[in-house]
Amino acid sequence: MNDALIPGRHSVPSLSALAAFEAAARHGSFTRAAEELNLTQGAVSRQVAQLEKGLGVALFERAKKRVSLTAAGAAYAADIRDGLSRLALATVSAMAFRGAAGVLNLASLPTFGTRWLIPRLPRFTEAHPGITINFASKLVPFDFGREPLDAAIHFGEPVWPGARLHRLMGEEIVPVASPALVERFGIDEPVDMLKLPLLQQSTRPRAWANWLERQGLPPQRAMMGPRFEQFAMVAQAAVAGLGLAIVPRFLVEEELRSGALVIPVDRPVTGEEGYYLVYPAEKAGLPTVIAFRDWLLAECGAGG
Rank of each mutant, 00 (worst) to 15 (best):
K195W: 01
L15W: 01
A151L: 05
R26M: 08
E147T: 10
A43H: 14
D79I: 01
H166C: 09
F155G: 00
V174G: 05
T132G: 00
A74Y: 00
L55K: 01
A19K: 09
H10I: 06
V176K: 03
R184M: 06
P287D: 02
L277H: 02
R26K: 13
G99H: 09
F292T: 04
Y279A: 12
R81G: 11
F60H: 08
A235L: 09
G243Q: 04
A302G: 04
P119I: 05
R184L: 15
G303H: 10
A94N: 09
I263Q: 01
F185V: 06
G303M: 05
F144Y: 13
N134T: 13
G216F: 08
V12M: 13
R249C: 00
P264H: 08
E273M: 09
A4I: 11
V289R: 03
G28A: 03
S29Q: 08
T114E: 15
D143N: 14
G73C: 00
V159I: 14
P190S: 12
A151D: 03
S14W: 02
I131G: 04
R62C: 01
F155A: 12
E189V: 08
N210W: 07
I131M: 06
A90E: 15
I173R: 14
R9Y: 11
P280Y: 11
L121Y: 11
R267Y: 04
E61S: 10
G274P: 07
W295K: 03
L69N: 04
V265D: 02
V234S: 07
A49G: 07
A23I: 03
I118H: 04
A298S: 15
A75N: 09
Q215T: 00
C300D: 00
G73N: 07
V159K: 13
G156A: 07
A177F: 02
R26L: 10
P287E: 07
P287H: 04
R249L: 12
L251R: 02
P119W: 07
F112N: 01
P141F: 12
A96V: 00
N38L: 13
R206Y: 10
E35N: 08
G243W: 03
P268K: 03
D266R: 04
P219Y: 00
A222K: 02
L106K: 02
N210M: 13
A74N: 06
M193L: 12
L296R: 08
S45D: 06
F60C: 01
R257L: 08
T111F: 05
G162S: 10
D294C: 04
A20D: 13
P161G: 10
A302E: 13
I131L: 05
A232S: 15
R86E: 12
P141A: 11
V239Q: 01
A107R: 12
P205V: 06
